[in-house]
């Protein structure tokens, strides 16, 4: 039986800029027990006077032993995210508790089709699933529908483009809500129910769905999927706050 989750020291090994407002932190975590795609961690920061605060961040990559990757979006005026994106120095510690979550998880051994729907930085845990599918050479079809404001906000843009081209059975659809790249035939705007219906498999197929993003986005998409006939019990959701970061 697994034991209680302790706070583990984690050291910044590498910081990779993803967009102007987001970076991936590669952290070395001695004793990391491993994790599944979709899981998250709690990160705790403590100041030298004892003040401490914590936030949850999704794991962006599949289990690679003693290093984990978190992609953090800088929240304007946030207490934690600007520090993590801009200031945490290579080699410096934070504390990490996890992996957390046994419901919003995916496994490459699942035989069913998987529909992933991301709003903004909700793509992070879904990217761990895309990457895990690639690393396992899994064959079951997967579609990622990724709603994002502008092309400049797309996380993992180059990798998504490459995976969409090279990974058999993987489809990537990026939809822009505020500004689309030149030549994009789709008018900008929110994902509509009709559009989700056209991008998703028919509800008659056996599909496991993961939706992650801000609360309003997830509620909207999950509601649309149910209205399209998707089984509520096969839709897994994870919501994060609009701010607080």
């Amino acid at each position: 039986m697994p034991g209680p989750l302790p706070w583990l020291p984690a050291y910044l090994v590498e910081r990779r800029p993803e967009t102007a407002a987001a970076a991936t932190l590669v952290l070395g975590v001695p004793g990391w027990p491993g994790h599944l795609p979709g899981q998250h961690v709690d990160v705790r920061l403590t100041a030298d006077d004892g003040y401490s605060t914590q936030r949850s961040y999704s794991l962006a990559a599949p289990d690679h032993g003693a290093t984990v990757e978190l992609t953090v979006q800088r929240v304007a005026d946030g207490e934690v995210s600007p520090f993590l994106v801009d200031d945490l120095a290579i080699g410096d510690p934070v504390e990490l508790r996890g992996p957390v979550g046994g419901w919003f998880v995916w496994s490459p051994t699942l035989p069913t089709r998987t529909l992933l729907v991301a709003g903004g930085s909700g793509v992070v845990p879904l990217m761990a699933m895309v990457r895990a599918r690639h690393e396992a050479g899994a064959a079951a079809p997967m579609r990622l529908v990724y709603s994002v404001r502008t092309p400049d906000d797309v996380l993992y843009a180059a990798e998504l483009e490459r995976r969409g081209r090279l990974d058999e059975g993987l489809e990537i659809h990026v939809v822009h809500t505020r500004r689309a790249p030149p030549g994009d035939a789709r008018p900008t705007g929110r994902l509509t129910r009709e559009e989700i219906g056209s991008l998703a498999w028919p509800a008659t197929e056996e599909v496991l769905t993961y939706v992650c993003g801000p609360t309003g986005f997830v509620d909207q998409v999950a509601g649309d999927l149910v209205a399209l006939g998707y089984d509520d019990h096969r839709i897994r959701t994870e919501r994060f706050g609009a701010t607080g970061g």
């Binding site: 403590t46 100041a47 004892g50 945490l88």
Partner: peptide, 16 residues
């Protein structure tokens, strides 16, 4: 107390 992260202060926060 947890492990201190150098440089982390917290937001708008002073002791008085």
């Amino acid at each position: 107390m947890g492990i201190v992260t150098p440089g982390f202060r917290g937001r708008g926060r002073d002791s008085a």
